[in-house]
């Protein structure tokens, strides 16, 4: 759509601007403020310059959390994207079963995150949980509160359970928008099922898949509640991701300066990814001619 230039449109944006400024800019400024100061209590602050940042860059704790975070996001993407596409391909095409599947699949998305954690906490317990009990019965030693590998597997399976539906729904929507003519043409050419997928469905879905990948990356990058409820970041710190570590530092230890520096670094990483996301989105819009 061709838009007209109208600077008065600012007035329509103003309410949003004020509201978001109140809830984003002011807190962010507070963080910046803390990140360059130190305190000995009693609300007396003095200038500390970039010390916090230096300390942070040299701390194993931050790099450890970042490494775990990246590993987690990578595993999540590697499982969820193919699985989501696979599920979308096998969805019923219409009628009652299609809407039934949609509703069941959206259900995990609407469960409060801490309840997701609680569900899996119960589900995985060896004494009372179905999963834990079954594994125990099969002779697999499984205890997510003691064993780091089990804890990782639990957190990952939980996230797959929670979010694969989102990928599947996006991919499904992408598939729905492919005109029937493409399939008919493929049929005339006697294309195999695989080449239909590879040459028609995948390219047509690339747009939504890109969005799905980025969304999943962002959200897995700031995951907090679910692992916090299930493992509390343990055993040890093996499932302590960036958010958990940060909250521990900020609200647990009240280590304001360092936590603020941490926040800013975290935020910059996110900002970078958002920028990539936005650029990809606008390019897609242009390509589709919307």
């Amino acid at each position: 759509m061709n838009k007209t230039v109208n600077h008065k449109a600012w007035f329509l944006v103003l309410p949003v601007l004020i509201l978001v400024a109140f809830s984003a800019v002011i807190p962010l400024m507070t963080v910046v403020n803390y990140s360059v100061q130190d305190t000995f209590g009693n609300n007396q602050f003095f200038w500390a310059g970039l010390e916090w940042f230096e300390e942070l860059l040299n701390s194993d704790r931050m790099w450890g959390a970042l490494g775990r975070q990246l590993a987690f996001s990578a595993i999540i993407l590697a499982i969820q994207i193919p699985l989501g596409v696979f599920i979308a391909l096998n969805m019923p095409k219409g009628g009652f079963w299609a809407s039934f599947c949609l509703v069941v699949m959206s259900l995990p998305l609407l469960i409060p995150w801490n309840v997701v954690g609680t569900i899996w906490q119960i589900f995985g317990r060896v004494d009372i949980g179905l999963l834990g009990h079954t594994l125990d019965w099969m002779g697999v030693s499984y205890n997510y509160t003691q064993n780091p590998v089990a804890a990782w597997i639990t957190v990952i399976v939980m996230d797959v359970w929670h979010w694969t539906s989102l990928v599947a729904l996006l991919a499904y929507a992408g598939l729905q928008s492919i005109p029937q003519a493409y399939y008919q043409a493929a049929k005339i050419d006697q294309a195999s099922r695989f080449s239909v997928f590879w040459y028609i469905e995948l390219p047509k879905m690339s747009g939504v898949l890109m969005i799905a990948i980025l969304l999943r990356f962002m959200d897995s990058f700031m995951i907090y509640t679910e692992p916090f409820v299930v493992t509390g970041g343990g055993p040890g710190s093996t499932t302590t991701f960036l958010s958990i570590d940060l909250v521990k530092m900020a609200l647990g230890q009240f280590d304001l300066g360092q936590a603020a520096a941490y926040s800013l670094m975290y935020f910059l990483v996110i900002l970078l990814i958002s920028w990539v996301f936005y650029t990809v989105m606008t390019n897609l819009d242009k390509r589709d001619g919307v």
Binding site: A24, T30, F221, M222, V247, F267, S274
Partner: peptide
């Protein structure tokens, strides 16, 4: 605006 959607709540909890 978009960056705010992407902002990790953990960063904003304390402020």
């Amino acid at each position: 605006l978009l960056t705010n959607r992407m902002a990790p709540p953990a960063v904003f909890a304390l402020p």
